[in-house]
């Protein structure tokens, strides 16, 4: 993944813009409790497998923007081992939005899949 070519990189970047928000919402929804940034990044990394879709550093501004839009809440808590950590959790608006976005994603995925497969239409 070190020598990813520029065209691939650009494509990934454009794809990841909206997906990161959806993925973060679903990670936090499934966690069911407040989670801090590094844990979130680890969960995302684990799910991502071998594709290097987004850098971890690009997740944090997305978290902040989700919070600014009222989809997430956060609070800072001191940690024993290092700097204080910001814990993020879902809001009701976040859950509703996740439902909508999951549906939009499903439709998008079907559309892209069928376009890629080139299903004949009569």
């Amino acid at each position: 993944m070190d020598d990813i070519n520029p065209a691939d990189k650009k494509f990934l970047k454009e794809l990841s813009a909206g997906i990161a928000a959806l993925v973060l919402l679903s990670v936090l929804d499934r966690a069911g409790q407040p989670v801090y940034g590094y844990r979130i990044a680890k969960i995302v990394e684990f799910n991502m497998g071998s594709v290097s879709m987004v850098k971890q550093g690009a997740l944090y501004p997305v978290l902040r923007s989700l919070e600014n839009n009222g989809l997430l809440n956060s609070k800072v808590e001191p940690s024993v081992s290092g700097p204080p950590r910001r814990y993020y959790s879902m809001t009701d608006l976040g859950r509703q939005t996740l439902d909508h976005w999951t549906k939009i994603w499903g439709d998008t995925k079907d559309f892209v899949d069928s376009a890629l497969k080139g299903v004949d239409h009569d």
């Binding site: 801090y36 590094y38 990044a41 550093g57 944090y60 290092g82 204080p84």
Partner: peptide
């Protein structure tokens, strides 16, 4: 940006 980076990098 600086506090996000510091929190993450130290943890990682």
């Amino acid at each position: 940006a600086l506090s996000d980076a510091e929190e993450h990098l130290r943890d990682a």
